Computed example of a mutant assay.
Amino acid sequence: MLFALAGLLAVLGTLNEPDRVRRLLLVAVCDALVALVAFLVPWRRARPDAPALIGLAGFGVLGMATWSFGGVAAGTGPFLVLLYAWAALHFRRWILLAYTVPATLAYVIPLIVTGQPPLVLSSAAILMPIALAVALLIEAQARHLRDDRERLARIEQWRAAMINTLAHDVRSPLGGVQMVLDELREDATGIQAVMLDGASRQTARIHRLADALLDVQRIDSSGHLKLDRQVHPALGLVRDALTYLRPDELIEVDVDPASTIWADKQRFEQILLNLVGNALRYGAPPVVISISRDGDVDRLEVRDHGAGIPEALRGSLFGQFAVGGPDGVGLGLWIVRQLAVAHGGTATAEHRDPGVAMVVTFPVHA
């Protein structure tokens, strides 16, 4: 783009320099050729420093432009600095230092050929150090940014590995625990049976939390989740999800037995359990679960009757690690929003008096 612009300016220069039309058109053609080569060559397959060769061609064209304008370097100087700035963003410091000789020759030789006075020639002693200094400053900042990006990439790799390892290591022993609980439950009665049922539900919940950690990794790495969406009875989905909670929780269900919802059953349960868990933890009972159809979407609403959401948290409520605390790490609502988006819906918080309603929408099956 830089050389295409230079070529365009050379063409426009013919309007003010009718005596140098042929020279300026030659410069424009050379600029266009350099731009075309820079655009068409598959640089990704070459060595990282290979595009620096464009700079050498560029210095030659800039020298030709100075000669074409009769030794007037008013346009050459800025483009030379821009060329240095481009090189500083992409190449190592030694290339910038190596550019000093061809850049100086490209600037000085046309001035000598056109017979410019010593005062004009001495401008190179000012321009070239300035161009090099600007380039070195830009190169230093670009290098720091690249180092930071590489460091963050390494941290992200470690984080992903830790999440995957933790999730898999948690799920493996849970299988053995679940088998023991199932064996004990066969002969248990009374309060023991109730306690074992609760332990089984919590074991299953830990298993689901491990799956949620893997979901976080999948969402971060690929940006989407694969869903197994089917049309389910809405009331059945809600009741199945609530079996993972204690039966004495103050939860009310307001769902039409005839209504249906198009969703991935496992992901729907994750959404509902996250919302209900937050309502019980941070709100006040009763927690009311309702599903209603609004046009072409089904609205899952989980409302509590607490103090509502502080104003300072509303903007970041569904962000990652945004609302963590002693009882959580702030991933629940972020996962809810990601799962809602994966379904093609939304997740929002709506004010109620009293309390707040967390609303997740699901598109209606066509």
Score class of each variant (00 low, 15 high):
residue 179 M to C: 08
residue 179 M to N: 13
residue 179 M to Q: 14
residue 179 M to T: 15
residue 179 M to W: 13
residue 180 V to P: 06
residue 180 V to Y: 10
residue 180 V to K: 10
residue 181 L to D: 00
residue 181 L to Q: 04
residue 181 L to S: 02
residue 181 L to W: 00
residue 181 L to M: 02
residue 181 L to N: 01
residue 181 L to G: 02
residue 182 D to W: 09
residue 182 D to F: 09
residue 182 D to K: 07
residue 182 D to C: 08
residue 182 D to V: 09
residue 182 D to E: 14
residue 182 D to I: 08
residue 183 E to P: 02
residue 183 E to A: 09
residue 183 E to Y: 05
residue 183 E to G: 07
residue 183 E to D: 10
residue 184 L to F: 00
residue 185 R to Q: 07
residue 185 R to E: 05
residue 185 R to K: 08
residue 185 R to H: 06
residue 185 R to I: 06
residue 185 R to G: 07
residue 185 R to N: 06
residue 185 R to D: 02
residue 185 R to S: 08
residue 185 R to C: 02
residue 186 E to T: 14
residue 186 E to R: 13
residue 186 E to Q: 13
residue 186 E to S: 09
residue 187 D to T: 11
residue 187 D to M: 11
residue 187 D to K: 08
residue 187 D to G: 12
residue 187 D to Y: 09
residue 187 D to S: 13
residue 188 A to P: 02
residue 188 A to S: 03
residue 188 A to D: 00
residue 188 A to V: 01
residue 189 T to S: 11
residue 189 T to A: 12
residue 189 T to F: 06
residue 189 T to G: 05
residue 190 G to Y: 02
residue 190 G to W: 02
residue 191 I to K: 10
residue 191 I to V: 15
residue 191 I to H: 12
residue 191 I to N: 11
residue 192 Q to W: 09
residue 192 Q to G: 09
residue 193 A to M: 08
residue 193 A to V: 06
residue 193 A to S: 11
residue 194 V to R: 12
residue 194 V to Q: 12
residue 194 V to F: 09
residue 194 V to L: 14
residue 194 V to M: 12
residue 194 V to Y: 06
residue 194 V to S: 10
residue 195 M to T: 10
residue 195 M to L: 13
residue 195 M to F: 08
residue 196 L to A: 00
residue 196 L to G: 02
residue 196 L to I: 01
residue 197 D to P: 00
residue 197 D to E: 08
residue 197 D to W: 03
residue 198 G to L: 00
residue 198 G to S: 04
residue 198 G to A: 04
residue 198 G to T: 03
residue 198 G to P: 05
residue 199 A to S: 06
residue 199 A to V: 02
residue 199 A to M: 10
residue 199 A to D: 03
residue 199 A to Q: 04
residue 200 S to V: 04
residue 200 S to M: 08
residue 200 S to C: 04
residue 200 S to H: 10
residue 201 R to A: 11
residue 201 R to H: 06
residue 202 Q to G: 04
residue 203 T to P: 00
residue 203 T to E: 01
residue 204 A to W: 05
residue 204 A to M: 11
residue 204 A to P: 03
residue 204 A to G: 15
residue 204 A to Y: 04
residue 204 A to S: 13
residue 204 A to C: 12
residue 205 R to E: 15
residue 205 R to D: 14
residue 205 R to I: 09
residue 205 R to S: 14
residue 205 R to K: 14
residue 205 R to M: 13
residue 205 R to N: 14
residue 206 I to F: 08
residue 206 I to A: 07
residue 206 I to N: 04
residue 206 I to S: 04
residue 206 I to E: 05
residue 207 H to A: 15
residue 208 R to P: 06
residue 208 R to F: 06
residue 209 L to P: 07
residue 209 L to D: 15
residue 209 L to H: 13
residue 209 L to M: 15
residue 209 L to W: 10
